[in-house]
């Protein structure tokens, strides 16, 4: 009790220093996070009205009109469905590969793990736009170094382009996720394995029964960030529009928002942004809660 009392008085004593520390971030956070979100919500409640067909456009309060329009917008919902399908397939594959590579790097089976760690992480340094441009060339039927493959399989067709984009995202982010999981593996004290080793357990057995359960928190973290990233997919499909006509202007939710905003129908785009942000939040929160319950039980 005395400790907190002392601390409290200390806080008051250093009010000036606290202001120096907190005001810069607080002000910028308010200006460029809180206020824009608030403004987008406000904008999403407006509708444009005109006096007759050619009268001046006036923005008036429209309540939830824009939200009703969002829910009736089929393109928006089919873009959400597309990225959900993408996420259901791509996120487990990406995290599975990241987990396997992290476990192998952490096992005594692999020599030169430092080199491999950096080699796998290197694509993270490639911006999404550049990665998409690069893979666009690699998928091309004429310019690819693997024309033998790309002339028989059309990676840019309407059926396959979603999965070709999934490969680009996987290529960029496996190494990053692997590194987070690997850091969690390094934090496990090695005494925990010793008993299992003395009992003659194989590396596979140690990985399955000891290591994987202990890195579940890292997997949850990477999973949540991957879900957020999937729902926000934008740069890769935007670039792929140059390579494949199958990537429409409403291919992902953010592309839909972008093309709606450039009509311009700002209020509808703002309402879509709010719905997408809420969907992202609800989904990542649900994953967090579900996995917490499972690990607690």
């Amino acid at each position: 009790m005395t400790d907190t009392a002392v601390r409290k008085s200390r806080g008051i004593r250093h009010r000036g220093a606290l202001a120096v520390f907190l005001v810069p971030f607080g002000a910028l956070f308010a200006l460029f996070y809180v206020i824009p979100i608030g403004y987008a919500v406000y904008q999403s409640l407006l509708v444009v009205e005109r006096d007759g067909t050619f009268g001046p456009a006036v923005q008036v309060f429209g309540g939830l009109t824009q939200y009703i329009a969002v829910f009736e917008n089929e393109a928006f919902w089919s873009s959400i469905g597309r990225v959900l399908l993408f996420g259901v397939v791509q996120v487990p594959i990406m995290l599975g590969v990241a987990l396997i590579l992290a476990l192998l790097l952490d096992s005594p089976l692999v020599r030169g793990s430092k080199f491999f760690r950096l080699a796998f992480f290197a694509p993270y340094a490639v911006p999404s736009v550049i990665a998409a441009i690069m893979w666009g060339f690699l998928y091309s039927p004429n310019l690819s170094p693997f024309t033998g493959v790309t002339q028989t399989v059309d990676f840019l067709s309407a059926e396959s382009v979603l999965w070709s984009i999934a490969n680009v995202v996987t290529w960029v982010y496996v190494g990053y996720n692997m590194l987070i999981i690997y850091s969690a593996l390094l934090a496990i004290p090695s005494e925990i394995y010793e008993a299992a080793r003395l009992d003659g357990a194989s590396q596979f057995r140690i990985a399955w029964s000891i290591k994987i359960p202990l890195v579940v928190p890292a997997l949850v973290l990477t999973g949540i960030f991957s879900i957020i990233g999937t729902l926000q997919l934008l740069a890769e499909p935007q670039v792929f529009q140059s390579f494949s006509s199958a990537v429409t202007s409403t291919f992902t939710p953010n592309l839909t928002i972008y093309s709606t905003a450039s009509i311009p129908n700002i209020s509808l785009a703002a309402a879509m942004s709010v719905v997408l942000a809420l969907a992202t939040f609800v989904l990542s929160f649900t994953v967090l809660k579900l996995t917490q319950r499972r690990t607690a039980a």
Binding site: L104, P108, L109, A122, W171, S202
Partner: peptide
């Protein structure tokens, strides 16, 4: 650890390295 599991592990590493570095090499 048997030589088999070492070989498999290293093979996975090499394939992964090719996957991650070939585009940059290209």
């Amino acid at each position: 650890e048997s030589a088999v599991s070492r070989t498999i592990a290293m093979a996975v590493m090499v394939v992964a390295t090719l996957y991650f570095l070939t585009p940059i090499w290209w």
